[in-house]
Design a protein around this nucleic acid. Structure first.
Lengths: 210, 210
DNA sequence: TCCAGATTCAAACGTACATTTCAAACACTT
DNA sequence: AAGTGTTTGAAATGTACGTTTGAATCTGGA
């Protein structure tokens, strides 16, 4: 029983790291199982298929993050005062950063995986995501709309997707960017630092005049 | 002789379309040659390998676009007047949109390919790009710095990468975004429309107060 | 201690891929 | 029209992949 848990955990740990680094389809089950030091067949035994493994890797983070976000969004929506955009974004970011507590480099890994999910695969991940967490995201969009009452909804739609691109791409090339920043500007930047830099950029972009 | 040109062209046309749609590694030479209606072996005969085909597909656009951009940047740098950020971005965008003249949907295809290049592959495309066109990009960075003289160089570095992420991600998921926009807002958006929406967003983000 | 169910293991299966090979077809010059 | 170099064609090669299989090995309760 404990060894089963151990094997599943080892597979998930290795898979999330490799998936984040090189993408879902470019990572083979053989790479995963050899890094996890388990048998090749154990992925199919414990998870059924590679597709289901991918979903399980994402679920580990999503099942923690999304209820937390939902709760924060609900709280903000209930408070009848005006929430400015920076505040909304900060409320979004805090639970994201807390993923670092549950797992080493958790925030970065999760965002990288999210990015892979958008660029790697065509169908099943986006469906999976919207189906499970569409309600929560709707609340976020509503909050942004309230904070920018002059912007039409379609403009907000586009700008939020632009912002998603910023976040996802930044995290996907996070390692390279950190190296360049260190070499060119003597800057040591961790994930918190990147996110702190992101917030004013995103807030200004989303709220930009048309 | 004419048939050789034809075969190469047919391969490039099919390849760029499939690469943009599903990524470089997810597209097989068999898909490409069957869409192009040429023999499987002709890719290796005309281009040497799949890797070289990828570079040839990108080169078709880059060899047009980058000298054009370089010329525009040089002109702006030479004119001793102040260039504000929107103008710099617009000068960047115009040659990009002109790719539509040389090929149907050229701009979209090129930007999608660029996005794939950043997310699909790890090494050789980024090297290829910086090695051939690093000088031109430096001029662009210089222009942005001149247009935002109060921003420290390191902040501009980060914000330009944020912006690159916005562009690349938006183009990579362009088809999906268009579909959602059409379904949710009855909006028909072409590439020009997306770029027009991007510019104020990017300009505001890059120039945001710290 | 022994047994049933859970887990691991090595091996194999079928499929898809990029690339190579070599003969056939072609195009162009003389 | 012949001959030469270029291009195409069909087939095969070797490799890597996800998945399946069935026996071996564990594990915890009777």
């Amino acid at each position: 029983m404990t060894s089963k848990q151990n094997t599943q955990q080892k597979i998930l740990d290795a898979a999330e790291r490799l998936f984040a680094e090189t993408g879902f389809s470019a990572t083979s089950l053989r790479q995963i199982t050899s890094m996890a030091e388990v048998n090749l067949a154990s992925v199919n035994y414990h998870f059924g298929s590679k597709k289901e493994l991918i979903q399980a890797v994402l679920q580990r983070y999503l099942s923690l993050l999304m209820p937390r976000l939902d709760q924060e969004f609900t709280r903000l929506l209930a408070s009848q005062q005006h929430n400015d955009l920076s505040k909304v974004l900060t409320v979004f970011v805090i639970p994201l950063l807390e993923l670092n507590k549950v797992q080493n480099r958790g925030t970065t890994l999760f965002l990288q995986l999210l990015g892979r999910g958008y660029t790697d695969v065509q169908g099943h991940l986006r469906w999976f995501f919207n189906h499970h967490y569409g309600r929560t995201l709707d609340k976020f969009v509503l909050l942004v709309q309230q904070s920018c009452p002059t912007l039409p909804a379609s403009e907000i739609f586009w700008r939020l997707h632009f912002s998603l691109g910023t976040i996802v791409f930044t995290m996907a090339s996070n390692e390279a960017l950190k190296d360049i920043a260190a070499a060119d500007f003597n800057e040591i930047v961790e994930i918190d630092g990147v996110i702190k830099r992101l917030i004013p950029y995103l807030a200004a972009g989303i709220a930009a005049p048309i």
